[in-house]
Nucleic acid binder design. Structure first.
Length: 167
DNA sequence: TCCGTATTGAACT
DNA sequence: AGTTCAATACGGA
C-alpha cells in the first residue's frame, strides 16, 4: 500500500493506494496516537518522485475529486476505487455512490436499494466500515427520523460536509 | 456462538 | 417529546 498526503483547506488528508486503486482515505488529525503505528505509517509514506506513474495519476485524480467533494460538488472524475470489504459492504458502498450531492437517504432506504430491506443495522455497520469517506458519501445517510446518525470521522465532519451541500 | 452496531417503528409514559 | 423494546443482518472474536 502506498500512502500519499493531500493538502486541503480543511487539513491534510491521507490516501492509500493498492495495486487496484484507491483503497483508503483518511481525515486530517486521525494520526495514530500509538507510536508504533505512527512509525509504521512513516515507513509507508512514499516520496512522490519514487511512486509509480499510475499511482501518481490516480493521486492527481483523487486530489481533484476530494477538493470538489469538500466544496459540495460532484467530482468530475474518480480514481479506480478499490476498498477492501465483504460482498455485502461493497454493495452498500456502491449504493452510497448513487446519492447525489445535496440529497440524503436513510439507512433503511439503502437497505431496500440493495434488496435487503431488513438489514438496516448491517447497513449502519457497512457505513461505519467505509474506508473511503467523502468520495463514497456515507455522510449522506441519515437516520429515518431525520436525526444525524453517526460518523466514523466524527460528527463534526458529517455536519460540515452536509452543510457545504446545502443541507 | 456470542456480542455489538452509524437502525427502525411501535407502544408506551 | 422522551423512553423502552423487540426484531433484525452482519461481522469480528
Amino acid at each position: 500500500m502506498i500512502k500519499m498526503p493531500i493538502a486541503t483547506p480543511w487539513g491534510k488528508f491521507t490516501a492509500r493506494y493498492s495495486q487496484r486503486g484507491l483503497a483508503e482515505l483518511h481525515f486530517p488529525g486521525n494520526g495514530s496516537a500509538d507510536p508504533a503505528l505512527r512509525d509504521r505509517d512513516a515507513r509507508q509514506r512514499v516520496p512522490a518522485n519514487k511512486t509509480p506513474s499510475t499511482v501518481r495519476r490516480w493521486h492527481r485524480t483523487t486530489t481533484a475529486a476530494l477538493k470538489s467533494a469538500l466544496n459540495g460538488r460532484a467530482p468530475q472524475k474518480l480514481p479506480p476505487l478499490a476498498p477492501v470489504g465483504t460482498a455485502f459492504r461493497k454493495r452498500v458502498w456502491h449504493a452510497l455512490r448513487k446519492i447525489p450531492p445535496g440529497q440524503t437517504k436513510s439507512y433503511g432506504e439503502i437497505a431496500r436499494v440493495i434488496g435487503k430491506p431488513r438489514a438496516v443495522r448491517a447497513v449502519g455497520g457497512a457505513c461505519g466500515a467505509n474506508p473511503i469517506p467523502v468520495l463514497i458519501p456515507c455522510h449522506r445517510v441519515l437516520a429515518a427520523n431525520g436525526k444525524i446518525g453517526g460518523f466514523s470521522g466524527g460528527l463534526d465532519w458529517k455536519r460540515r460536509l452536509l452543510a457545504h451541500e446545502g443541507i
